[in-house]
Design a protein around this nucleic acid. Structure first.
Lengths: 186, 186
DNA sequence: AACATAACTAAGCATTTGCTTAGTTATAAA
DNA sequence: TTTATAACTAAGCAAATGCTTAGTTATGTT
């Protein structure tokens, strides 16, 4: 038989993910990736096919990292308050040093061309997963009608997307203001 | 004396702006720019110094294009309703064919490296200009205290930023839901 | 008409991009 | 121990990147 891999695919993808998260898709070159991942380009392409493949696996990895706060939300039984906590948890999650990196997925949305269908679909799936968590938490309020739940879920997604962007431009106080007002009348 | 320019700087920048708007900063190459602008690279660099210079002028151009709906907001005397109308106007403004291009400025935020201070400052200035319009419209309600005005302005900015992103992922009904709920209790 | 000068053209610069290929090394089964 | 095979290294590919340079053309002033 043959040699075995000298690296763990999960481990190197995690490093790739952090690069993509920090720099975005286009601004992360294959040279940067091989340096950060600690493997040769050949190995990279053997394991993940191409740069896009590395990115797709990075999204999966990002999703796994997010699992901790997502399952916290999924298990919360306190309705809207649980969602609000998720907003704060997300900010913590995306913090690196003194600056926020935003959400890997929403950061990438603007970079992905309509031709990259596979990536675009992955991004939409990701967004809808979180939206579904919002829906089930909103439904914990028995008085809420289905139509309102759906509208509020859309509204919350908008505020979460906004927060990912806003965290790069506005200060901590303003971010807290945003979250506070978002949940004021839910 | 010398020859005169065979192109109008405003006109060619408008074309550049549309390219940046559609593709983003990095994905717009200087070759694409010279093709779209209809001028040689030499002329481009003579007029705008470098690619970053073209982009900065494009932001100014974008701002001028936005002036129509911004001044409509500035002149509105109906408080929150005027702001809500701005949200709808922005969606119209960013529509091309059947898809939304989002906001040129927020599209770019993720692409700009912290080293591009000049661009980053331009983006922040742009965001705060709109925020100030929100503030003065919010103040048309005499009952609103200053602190609340500021918090609501932050909240509205978050929803506007979100909308720019959301318009690329969610459908028209959902976008309308987002706007509706955003303004439900203001 | 001659000149000075800015606007132009087109070619080319070094660097970087994503990806491949030719050749070497390690490993497990025979 | 031999051998088949996959994992590795490192060099290199064409194409694209932002930007520059050398040389030509047009135009207002003298």
């Amino acid at each position: 038989m043959a040699r075995k891999k000298q690296y763990n695919e999960q481990e190197v993808i995690e490093k790739a993910m952090h690069l993509f998260w920090k720099n975005g898709y286009e601004a992360t070159s294959v040279r940067m990736l091989e340096k950060e991942m600690g493997i040769n380009q050949f190995s990279m392409y053997a394991s993940f096919k191409n740069k896009q493949g590395v990115f797709l696996k990075s999204i999966e990895c990002y999703n796994r990292q997010l699992h901790k706060i997502k399952s916290k939300l999924a298990n919360s039984q306190n309705g809207v308050a649980g969602i609000q906590q998720y907003f704060y948890d997300f900010l913590d999650f995306s913090l690196e040093g003194i600056s926020y990196k935003g959400c890997l997925v929403t950061n990438s949305i603007n970079e992905i061309k309509p031709t990259d269908v596979e990536i675009l679909e992955a991004l939409k799936r990701f967004a809808n997963e979180i939206r579904n968590l919002f829906v089930s938490n909103l439904k914990q309020d028995d008085l809420k009608k289905e139509a309102i739940v759906q509208k509020q879920a859309d509204y919350l997604m908008n505020n979460l997307l906004g927060l990912s962007l806003a965290s790069k431009v506005f200060d901590k106080t303003q971010l807290n203001n945003m979250i506070e007002i978002t949940f004021l009348h839910l």
